[in-house]
Design a protein around this nucleic acid. Structure first.
Lengths: 258, 258
DNA sequence: CGCCATGTTGAAAATATTCAAAGACCGTGG
DNA sequence: CCACGGTCTTTGAATATTTTCAACATGGCG
């Protein structure tokens, strides 16, 4: 399965007509970056509209279908990516079929920059998604040239480490109920898609959640039902969660019993 | 408890007499760095003997007693540290007394550099230990001036992330037996102290191991006994582990049953 | 020599998993 | 538009693993 690629420099909302066509009058040309969901992300956020042209000139938009794998754990890391649309999961898989999801990734987050030479996880699309692909060599040049990019990279890496450490605490020390409650709170605070009324739209399955929380899908489902029966959340559907009492949810996320 | 501090620039094995005295003839002056266990570490390893003087001039050696805390989770990160002797644990603690150890740290590893503004864990000495303290501001200057330092920092951070991801896999998806086996293999491959015959000298208690592996100390103790009874390790004492059959240990670390 | 922290082992209890079955949802094609 | 098939979710009951509670052993250190 080959992902579709479009140069970022000619992809943009300022254009009328189908994506990717060219030859229009320059006044209609608009950089995809200008309206990109990741415009304020760690990597792109530190550059002004002129500087970002340089970044865009060495980037391509890549389209992903649900289930499509963007990078493989252990592969040589030639590219770095910034997610511009949709959701992905970062995961470690073992040959006996077990899987640990490390994080769910949404627009603005980057993949593949910190590792020295190889990717340290699989990254797979949960939904239809779009990423902006950068050549890592070129990105290193840009980091050297624009300290803001370097700084953004560092901030992003620091956040990834922090996320990983909090996750380790959950996996090692929290009960199933606490993990599920904490998961919902994290999603709530993240850039996970939400309805206008604030209801979370979960792009992942119960099995994904289970593999993220170190549980089975049945245990996750039971915990969801339990939190619902306590009146703390509503479940309009299996993939929609309305948080009705965030304080009690916080209590559930930090209390060993119940 | 205040840790003792000694300027790194006048601490060294080339000196005769008590640590920290000054005024001797310059020919006896020897930089502590030259014989430092962390000389080849990520931060210091990229600098030559002349460049390292500049690094040393803004560093201090700090002595730690067992149980002493070097940095606190959430505190403003003014300093970065490189471990030069002994062992520390990096951990997350919650106010209800639960604790998750994120990593055991030995000579050469650094603490406190990636985070933007605050430390992301407690770092506490397991043994008598010594760390080399750097002002983070100064270190940032050095990173800008010497790309090798910057590169070492990135390599170190990438390794920390990789370690965290592998740990998440263990915590979320491995059985108690697998975790203990994998832990021993990791220690074996680490810079954890060993006897001349290769026997591991564990600087941590069963309780520390439990809090690292997301288990109870009883479960860890039972797993040690089990691996021992299988003839895969010997336990000359509770804190010494001799690996007798590393292939079978690897099998134990990757097999769900047993 | 004895004390206190640490480690080991056993039995009961709690938590999560496994196996199983039924229900809900989604997209497709008739 | 509805029926169909497959996937995902929920729930129940039995089982397995780990934890908890408890007792005893060990070992370092005054």
């Amino acid at each position: 399965m080959i992902a579709k690629e479009v140069p970022a420099s000619i992809t943009g909302l300022g254009r009328i007509g189908t994506r990717g066509e060219s030859g229009l009058h320059p006044v209609y040309e608009s950089l995809a970056c200008f309206s990109c969901a990741a415009r304020k992300s760690d990597i792109c956020g530190g550059l002004d509209n002129n500087e970002i042209r340089e970044l865009a000139s060495s980037s391509h938009r890549v389209q992903l279908r649900p289930g499509e794998t963007l990078v493989w754990d252990g592969d040589a890391a030639q590219y770095a990516y910034v997610i511009t649309r949709g959701a992905l999961r970062a995961q470690k898989a073992s040959d006996d079929g077990r899987r640990q999801i490390l994080d769910f990734l949404f627009a603005g987050q980057f993949i593949g920059i910190p590792s020295g030479t190889t990717y340290s996880f699989d990254a797979e699309a949960l939904t239809d998604a779009e990423v902006c692909r950068f050549d890592r060599r070129k990105l290193e040049e840009l980091m050297a040239k624009y300290p803001a990019v370097e700084k953004g990279y560092r901030a992003g890496t620091a956040r990834q480490l922090e996320t990983a450490y909090d996750h380790a605490y959950s996996l090692g020390r929290r009960s199933a109920m606490e993990r599920v409650a904490a998961f919902l709170l994290d999603l709530h605070a993240s850039s996970c898609p939400k309805t206008t009324t604030g209801t979370l739209k979960l792009p992942m399955t119960r099995s994904d959640i289970a593999d993220f929380l170190g549980l089975t899908l049945e245990t996750v489902s039971r915990a969801f039902s339990r939190v619902k029966s306590l009146g703390v959340i509503r479940l309009p559907s299996a993939h929609e969660v309305e948080i009705r009492d965030i304080e009690r949810l916080k209590a559930l996320a930090a209390t060993r019993s119940l």
